[in-house]
């Protein structure tokens, strides 16, 4: 039978530091891309129209009527209607994303398995 592992007692300061580390990492994960202006989802208007009309914005009379009911004019609805995502992407970016995801799951499953074997060995004996 494997000897039971006895974890050390964690002091209050150490607990506090652990919490701060997690909070800082969490906030960083969301806000750093925002601060660096790297957050995606930027829709843009490829070809602005100088003096927009509903027709020029590609709206049928029925569609234009809805916009007007919502309080819009062709001028105020210009960006709303014409802004589009750009779905073109470099293959390298896709490969990087796939590699990062696979690396993550590889690390996760490998370390988890090693830890799990310890748990089972201690719980059920070897």
């Amino acid at each position: 039978m494997r000897a039971h592992y006895r974890p050390p007692q964690q002091g209050k300061i150490s607990q506090l530091i652990d919490v701060i580390v997690l909070v800082v990492l969490t906030i960083g994960a969301l806000f750093v891309p925002l601060w660096l202006n790297m957050a995606g989802a930027a829709k843009s208007v490829a070809q602005p129209i100088e003096n927009p009309t509903w027709e020029a914005l590609g709206q049928t009379p029925a569609q234009a009527a809805k916009y007007e009911a919502l309080g819009h004019t062709p001028q105020t609805a210009h960006d709303l209607i014409l802004a589009r995502f750009d779905y073109s992407f470099p293959v390298g970016a896709l490969v990087t994303m796939i590699a990062v995801i696979l690396l993550y799951y590889f690390l996760l499953l490998r370390f988890s398995e090693a830890e799990y074997r310890d748990v089972i060995a201690e719980k059920f004996g070897e």
Binding site: A29, P33, M38, A39, G40, A41, Y87, F89, A93
Partner: peptide
Amino acid sequence: FLGYGTQLVAM
């Protein structure tokens, strides 16, 4: 990834 790839990798 289509539009929000940076957030995905950051996450």
